[in-house]
Amino acid sequence: MTALVFTGAAFFLSLCTGKYPLSLTVLFSGNEAALRVFQTLRLPRTVMALCAGFCLGCAGMVYQIIFQNPLASPDIIGVSSGASVGAASAILFFHASPAGITGWAFAGALSAVFLAFALTSLTGQKNLATMVLSGIAVNALAQSVLMMLKFTADPEKELASIEYWIMGSLGSITASKIPVPLIVSASGIFLLFFFCQKMLLLSLSDDEARTLGVPVTLLRLFLLSLATLVVAATVSVTGLISFIGLLAPHTARLLLKTNGRTTLFLSGLLGSALLLTADLIARSTATELPVSILTSVLGAPFLLWILFREGRT
Protein backbone atom coordinates (compact mmCIF):
# COMPACT_ATOMS: atom_id res chain seq x y z
CA MET A 1 0.00 0.00 0.00
CA THR A 2 2.78 2.33 0.93
CA ALA A 3 4.68 1.36 -2.19
CA LEU A 4 1.59 2.06 -4.23
CA VAL A 5 1.31 5.60 -2.97
CA PHE A 6 5.02 6.05 -3.35
CA THR A 7 5.12 4.95 -6.95
CA GLY A 8 1.90 6.79 -7.58
CA ALA A 9 3.40 10.03 -6.39
CA ALA A 10 6.68 9.47 -8.17
CA PHE A 11 4.89 8.55 -11.37
CA PHE A 12 2.79 11.61 -11.09
CA LEU A 13 5.85 13.74 -10.76
CA SER A 14 7.49 12.36 -13.86
CA LEU A 15 4.18 12.72 -15.64
CA CYS A 16 4.03 16.35 -14.74
CA THR A 17 7.57 16.98 -15.70
CA GLY A 18 7.01 15.04 -18.87
CA LYS A 19 3.88 16.90 -19.72
CA TYR A 20 5.62 20.02 -20.68
CA PRO A 21 6.78 18.68 -24.02
CA LEU A 22 3.12 17.88 -24.69
CA SER A 23 2.05 21.45 -24.20
CA LEU A 24 4.84 22.35 -26.49
CA THR A 25 3.30 20.49 -29.45
CA VAL A 26 1.85 23.84 -30.27
CA LEU A 27 5.30 25.17 -30.53
CA PHE A 28 6.79 22.27 -32.41
CA SER A 29 5.43 23.82 -35.52
CA GLY A 30 7.04 27.09 -34.52
CA ASN A 31 10.71 27.98 -34.61
CA GLU A 32 13.50 26.35 -32.68
CA ALA A 33 14.33 29.60 -30.85
CA ALA A 34 10.87 29.84 -29.34
CA LEU A 35 11.13 26.22 -28.24
CA ARG A 36 14.40 26.92 -26.52
CA VAL A 37 13.00 29.98 -24.77
CA PHE A 38 10.13 27.95 -23.47
CA GLN A 39 12.49 25.30 -22.28
CA THR A 40 14.42 27.83 -20.30
CA LEU A 41 11.16 28.97 -18.76
CA ARG A 42 9.26 25.70 -18.49
CA LEU A 43 12.02 23.54 -17.10
CA PRO A 44 13.05 25.89 -14.28
CA ARG A 45 9.41 26.32 -13.44
CA THR A 46 8.81 22.59 -13.19
CA VAL A 47 11.96 22.05 -11.18
CA MET A 48 10.94 24.83 -8.84
CA ALA A 49 7.48 23.36 -8.43
CA LEU A 50 9.02 20.00 -7.58
CA CYS A 51 11.41 21.47 -5.03
CA ALA A 52 9.02 23.99 -3.52
CA GLY A 53 6.35 21.34 -3.07
CA PHE A 54 8.84 18.96 -1.49
CA CYS A 55 10.17 21.63 0.87
CA LEU A 56 6.74 22.76 1.96
CA GLY A 57 5.60 19.19 2.49
CA CYS A 58 8.61 18.27 4.62
CA ALA A 59 8.63 21.50 6.60
CA GLY A 60 4.92 21.10 7.24
CA MET A 61 5.52 17.72 8.85
CA VAL A 62 8.25 19.17 11.05
CA TYR A 63 5.82 21.82 12.29
CA GLN A 64 3.12 19.24 12.92
CA ILE A 65 5.43 17.04 15.00
CA ILE A 66 7.01 19.86 16.97
CA PHE A 67 3.73 21.56 17.78
CA GLN A 68 2.15 18.15 18.49
CA ASN A 69 -0.77 19.24 16.37
CA PRO A 70 -1.82 17.52 13.14
CA LEU A 71 -3.33 20.80 11.98
CA ALA A 72 -0.18 22.87 12.37
CA SER A 73 1.36 24.40 9.29
CA PRO A 74 4.25 26.76 8.68
CA ASP A 75 1.89 29.68 9.17
CA ILE A 76 1.56 28.94 12.85
CA ILE A 77 4.52 31.06 13.93
CA GLY A 78 4.38 33.72 11.28
CA VAL A 79 6.51 32.66 8.31
CA SER A 80 3.84 33.48 5.76
CA SER A 81 2.64 36.73 7.24
CA GLY A 82 6.21 37.89 7.79
CA ALA A 83 7.09 37.11 4.21
CA SER A 84 4.00 39.02 3.01
CA VAL A 85 4.99 42.07 5.01
CA GLY A 86 8.51 41.89 3.63
CA ALA A 87 7.31 41.58 0.06
CA ALA A 88 4.72 44.34 0.45
CA SER A 89 7.31 46.70 1.92
CA ALA A 90 9.65 45.94 -0.93
CA ILE A 91 6.96 46.66 -3.49
CA LEU A 92 5.76 49.84 -1.79
CA PHE A 93 8.82 51.54 -0.44
CA PHE A 94 11.69 50.28 -2.45
CA HIS A 95 10.02 49.66 -5.81
CA ALA A 96 12.21 46.64 -5.78
CA SER A 97 13.09 44.33 -8.58
CA PRO A 98 11.83 40.75 -8.27
CA ALA A 99 15.17 39.82 -6.72
CA GLY A 100 14.71 42.57 -4.20
CA ILE A 101 11.22 41.39 -3.33
CA THR A 102 12.62 37.90 -2.79
CA GLY A 103 15.26 39.19 -0.45
CA TRP A 104 12.84 41.32 1.53
CA ALA A 105 10.29 38.53 1.75
CA PHE A 106 12.96 36.18 3.08
CA ALA A 107 14.06 38.75 5.64
CA GLY A 108 10.47 39.38 6.64
CA ALA A 109 9.75 35.70 7.14
CA LEU A 110 12.81 35.13 9.30
CA SER A 111 12.21 38.29 11.33
CA ALA A 112 8.65 37.29 12.11
CA VAL A 113 9.70 33.86 13.37
CA PHE A 114 12.58 35.19 15.42
CA LEU A 115 10.23 37.72 16.91
CA ALA A 116 7.97 34.82 17.92
CA PHE A 117 10.98 33.05 19.47
CA ALA A 118 12.02 36.22 21.29
CA LEU A 119 8.53 36.75 22.67
CA THR A 120 8.49 33.15 23.89
CA SER A 121 11.74 33.47 25.81
CA LEU A 122 10.72 36.85 27.24
CA THR A 123 7.79 35.22 28.99
CA GLY A 124 10.17 32.89 30.82
CA GLN A 125 7.96 29.88 30.13
CA LYS A 126 9.45 28.31 27.08
CA ASN A 127 6.82 25.70 26.45
CA LEU A 128 4.76 24.90 23.40
CA ALA A 129 1.65 26.77 24.41
CA THR A 130 3.62 29.98 24.86
CA MET A 131 5.21 29.53 21.47
CA VAL A 132 1.85 29.10 19.79
CA LEU A 133 0.53 32.20 21.52
CA SER A 134 3.58 34.19 20.47
CA GLY A 135 3.00 32.98 16.92
CA ILE A 136 -0.60 34.15 17.09
CA ALA A 137 0.58 37.53 18.35
CA VAL A 138 3.18 37.87 15.61
CA ASN A 139 0.67 36.81 12.96
CA ALA A 140 -1.82 39.39 14.18
CA LEU A 141 0.85 42.08 14.21
CA ALA A 142 2.08 41.20 10.74
CA GLN A 143 -1.45 41.08 9.36
CA SER A 144 -2.23 44.54 10.68
CA VAL A 145 1.02 45.94 9.26
CA LEU A 146 0.15 44.28 5.97
CA MET A 147 -3.31 45.81 6.01
CA MET A 148 -1.80 49.23 6.60
CA LEU A 149 0.61 48.75 3.73
CA LYS A 150 -2.18 47.65 1.43
CA PHE A 151 -4.22 50.63 2.51
CA THR A 152 -1.50 53.09 1.60
CA ALA A 153 -0.64 51.30 -1.63
CA ASP A 154 -1.56 52.67 -5.01
CA PRO A 155 -4.68 50.67 -5.95
CA GLU A 156 -3.80 50.57 -9.59
CA LYS A 157 -0.30 49.21 -9.56
CA GLU A 158 1.17 48.45 -6.18
CA LEU A 159 -1.84 46.89 -4.53
CA ALA A 160 -2.27 44.50 -7.40
CA SER A 161 1.38 43.49 -7.20
CA ILE A 162 1.10 42.84 -3.50
CA GLU A 163 -2.05 40.76 -3.82
CA TYR A 164 -0.65 38.79 -6.71
CA TRP A 165 2.49 38.04 -4.74
CA ILE A 166 0.47 36.85 -1.79
CA MET A 167 -1.50 34.48 -3.97
CA GLY A 168 1.69 32.83 -5.13
CA SER A 169 2.83 32.02 -8.60
CA LEU A 170 5.46 30.00 -10.35
CA GLY A 171 5.10 32.04 -13.52
CA SER A 172 8.13 34.21 -13.10
CA ILE A 173 10.61 31.50 -12.26
CA THR A 174 13.70 31.61 -14.43
CA ALA A 175 16.86 29.55 -14.16
CA SER A 176 18.72 32.31 -12.36
CA LYS A 177 16.20 32.35 -9.54
CA ILE A 178 16.68 28.73 -8.64
CA PRO A 179 20.21 28.12 -7.32
CA VAL A 180 20.24 30.21 -4.14
CA PRO A 181 16.88 29.16 -2.67
CA LEU A 182 17.55 25.61 -3.79
CA ILE A 183 20.86 25.40 -1.97
CA VAL A 184 19.42 26.91 1.19
CA SER A 185 16.34 24.65 1.16
CA ALA A 186 18.31 21.56 0.21
CA SER A 187 20.69 22.02 3.14
CA GLY A 188 17.77 22.57 5.44
CA ILE A 189 15.93 19.49 4.18
CA PHE A 190 19.06 17.36 4.44
CA LEU A 191 19.54 18.37 8.07
CA LEU A 192 15.88 17.77 8.84
CA PHE A 193 16.13 14.22 7.53
CA PHE A 194 19.32 13.74 9.51
CA PHE A 195 17.69 14.79 12.76
CA CYS A 196 14.39 13.05 12.12
CA GLN A 197 14.74 10.55 14.97
CA LYS A 198 15.63 13.32 17.42
CA MET A 199 12.67 15.33 16.18
CA LEU A 200 10.30 12.55 17.19
CA LEU A 201 11.49 12.92 20.79
CA LEU A 202 9.64 16.23 20.77
CA SER A 203 6.35 14.38 20.52
CA LEU A 204 6.75 13.61 24.22
CA SER A 205 5.77 16.12 26.85
CA ASP A 206 8.54 18.49 27.92
CA ASP A 207 8.93 16.75 31.27
CA GLU A 208 9.11 13.25 29.85
CA ALA A 209 11.58 14.31 27.16
CA ARG A 210 13.78 15.98 29.77
CA THR A 211 13.91 12.78 31.80
CA LEU A 212 15.38 11.18 28.70
CA GLY A 213 18.05 13.84 28.64
CA VAL A 214 16.64 15.67 25.62
CA PRO A 215 17.50 19.41 25.52
CA VAL A 216 13.91 20.25 24.70
CA THR A 217 14.00 24.01 24.21
CA LEU A 218 17.23 23.98 22.21
CA LEU A 219 16.18 21.12 19.96
CA ARG A 220 12.81 22.69 19.32
CA LEU A 221 14.38 26.02 18.42
CA PHE A 222 16.96 24.39 16.18
CA LEU A 223 14.49 22.27 14.23
CA LEU A 224 11.97 25.08 13.90
CA SER A 225 14.68 27.39 12.63
CA LEU A 226 15.67 24.83 10.00
CA ALA A 227 12.09 24.31 8.89
CA THR A 228 11.48 28.05 8.83
CA LEU A 229 14.60 28.62 6.75
CA VAL A 230 13.36 26.08 4.24
CA VAL A 231 9.89 27.62 4.03
CA ALA A 232 11.21 31.17 3.91
CA ALA A 233 13.62 30.32 1.10
CA THR A 234 10.77 28.75 -0.84
CA VAL A 235 8.03 31.33 -0.39
CA SER A 236 10.35 34.25 -0.94
CA VAL A 237 10.67 33.09 -4.54
CA THR A 238 7.23 31.71 -5.22
CA GLY A 239 5.01 33.85 -3.04
CA LEU A 240 2.65 32.28 -0.55
CA ILE A 241 1.45 28.85 -1.51
CA SER A 242 -1.32 27.83 0.77
CA PHE A 243 -2.41 24.45 1.99
CA ILE A 244 0.55 22.30 0.95
CA GLY A 245 2.30 22.66 4.30
CA LEU A 246 -0.89 21.47 5.98
CA LEU A 247 -2.23 18.89 3.56
CA ALA A 248 0.84 16.93 2.48
CA PRO A 249 2.13 15.96 5.93
CA HIS A 250 -1.34 15.32 7.30
CA THR A 251 -2.10 12.97 4.43
CA ALA A 252 1.27 11.25 4.64
CA ARG A 253 0.85 10.60 8.37
CA LEU A 254 -2.70 9.44 7.87
CA LEU A 255 -1.67 6.99 5.16
CA LEU A 256 1.45 5.55 6.74
CA LYS A 257 0.28 5.76 10.36
CA THR A 258 3.82 6.36 11.48
CA ASN A 259 6.20 9.29 11.64
CA GLY A 260 9.67 8.27 10.57
CA ARG A 261 11.83 9.33 7.68
CA THR A 262 9.66 7.46 5.19
CA THR A 263 6.70 9.57 6.21
CA LEU A 264 8.80 12.72 5.93
CA PHE A 265 9.78 11.72 2.43
CA LEU A 266 6.23 10.86 1.42
CA SER A 267 5.11 14.19 2.81
CA GLY A 268 7.61 15.89 0.53
CA LEU A 269 6.54 13.82 -2.46
CA LEU A 270 2.87 14.57 -1.91
CA GLY A 271 3.72 18.24 -1.65
CA SER A 272 5.57 18.08 -4.96
CA ALA A 273 2.75 16.17 -6.62
CA LEU A 274 0.16 18.67 -5.45
CA LEU A 275 2.15 21.70 -6.47
CA LEU A 276 3.06 20.29 -9.88
CA THR A 277 -0.57 19.48 -10.62
CA ALA A 278 -1.75 22.84 -9.38
CA ASP A 279 0.84 24.66 -11.43
CA LEU A 280 0.02 22.62 -14.50
CA ILE A 281 -3.61 23.64 -14.33
CA ALA A 282 -2.70 27.19 -13.37
CA ARG A 283 -0.73 27.78 -16.51
CA SER A 284 -3.23 26.07 -18.75
CA THR A 285 -5.91 28.69 -18.28
CA ALA A 286 -6.17 31.73 -20.51
CA THR A 287 -4.72 34.16 -17.98
CA GLU A 288 -2.40 32.39 -15.65
CA LEU A 289 -4.03 31.77 -12.30
CA PRO A 290 -2.13 32.18 -9.04
CA VAL A 291 -1.18 28.76 -7.83
CA SER A 292 -2.61 29.00 -4.30
CA ILE A 293 -6.12 29.00 -5.68
CA LEU A 294 -5.47 25.63 -7.20
CA THR A 295 -3.59 24.06 -4.32
CA SER A 296 -6.61 24.67 -2.14
CA VAL A 297 -9.16 23.62 -4.78
CA LEU A 298 -7.28 20.40 -5.47
CA GLY A 299 -6.08 19.75 -1.98
CA ALA A 300 -9.30 19.98 -0.03
CA PRO A 301 -11.25 17.31 -1.96
CA PHE A 302 -8.17 15.08 -1.90
CA LEU A 303 -7.99 15.32 1.87
CA LEU A 304 -11.70 14.61 2.12
CA TRP A 305 -11.27 11.54 -0.08
CA ILE A 306 -8.43 10.24 2.08
CA LEU A 307 -10.45 10.82 5.26
CA PHE A 308 -13.47 9.10 3.74
CA ARG A 309 -11.36 6.12 2.73
CA GLU A 310 -9.70 5.86 6.11
CA GLY A 311 -13.03 6.17 7.83
CA ARG A 312 -14.39 3.20 5.95
CA THR A 313 -11.56 0.74 6.69
Partner: peptide, 11 residues
Protein backbone atom coordinates in the same frame (compact mmCIF):
# COMPACT_ATOMS: atom_id res chain seq x y z
CA UNK B 1 5.35 8.96 34.56
CA UNK B 2 1.87 7.93 35.45
CA UNK B 3 0.82 8.16 31.83
CA UNK B 4 3.03 8.42 28.80
CA UNK B 5 2.62 11.61 26.84
CA UNK B 6 3.68 10.21 23.48
CA UNK B 7 1.27 11.68 20.97
CA UNK B 8 2.67 10.83 17.54
CA UNK B 9 2.00 7.43 15.98
CA UNK B 10 5.05 5.22 15.87
CA UNK B 11 5.87 1.53 16.25
Amino acid sequence: PQKSSLCASMP
